[in-house]
Computed example of a mutant assay.
Amino acid sequence: MKNEINANMFAFSLTSPAEVIRGLSERMKRRRIDGGLTQRDLAARAGVSYGSLRLFEETGKISLEALVRVAFALEGEAEFEHLFPPRPPKTIDDVVDRPVRQRVRRK
């Protein structure tokens, strides 16, 4: 039943950047605690400062590099593969062989 409650805790829709950040820091903290790690333990394992880790848990503020290091330390790096996936094609023209755009020109 405990796992069912934990699964449902994060089943809500995240609708703002602040909510996404809050949810991310809460999930990281939960994974740290479930792994039996203190903040200092995780900071040392991830190669980030204790202050950075503490600030992330309290406010959600952390550099991208530090976040990725923490994810690796908690064996959650594969989750980054789900960020910014390619969008599915909308039309048949999107499926036909076209050169992949490397950048967008300013108008």
Rank of each mutant, 00 (worst) to 15 (best):
P88V: 15
N8H: 14
G76Y: 00
L67R: 08
I62S: 00
A66R: 03
S63K: 01
T59G: 12
L74F: 10
A78Q: 14
S49M: 00
R31P: 11
A46C: 11
Q39S: 07
Y50R: 09
L42T: 00
R54D: 08
F12C: 07
P85N: 08
L67M: 11
A46R: 11
L24T: 05
M9L: 08
T15P: 02
A73C: 11
E79P: 07
A46W: 10
F84Q: 15
A44I: 12
M9H: 08
E65L: 10
F72D: 15
R27C: 00
E65D: 12
E58Y: 01
R69L: 05
L64G: 13
G51S: 11
S13G: 02
N6S: 06
G23N: 10
G47M: 04
S13V: 12
A46P: 13
R31V: 04
V48D: 10
F84L: 12
R69Q: 09
L67F: 09
L14A: 14
A46F: 09
S25P: 10
A78H: 15
G47Y: 05
H82T: 08
R87E: 14
V68P: 01
K29S: 06
M28H: 04
R54F: 04
K61V: 06
L14Y: 15
L55M: 06
R54C: 13
F72L: 09
E26M: 06
A73V: 13
F12L: 12
V70L: 09
P86N: 09
P88E: 14
A73F: 10
E19T: 01
R32I: 03
L37M: 10
A78V: 11
S63H: 00
I21W: 06
A18H: 02
N8Q: 10
V68G: 00
A73R: 15
A18K: 02
P17M: 03
F10M: 07
R40H: 10
V48S: 06
N8S: 08
P85I: 00
L83H: 15
D41S: 11
G51Y: 05
L42Y: 11
V68M: 09
Q39I: 13
S52K: 02
E58N: 08
P86D: 15
E26V: 04
A73P: 08
E19W: 04
V70G: 04
A71R: 09
T59W: 02
K29P: 13
E19F: 01
A43F: 06
K29I: 01
L53N: 03
P88Y: 08
V20C: 15
S49F: 03
L83Q: 14
F56P: 14
V68F: 07
G76L: 14
G36H: 14
P86K: 05
R54M: 06
A71L: 12
R30Q: 03
S16E: 08
A71K: 07
L74P: 04
T59N: 09
L42M: 06
R40P: 07
D34S: 09
E57M: 03
T59S: 11
S25C: 07
F84T: 15
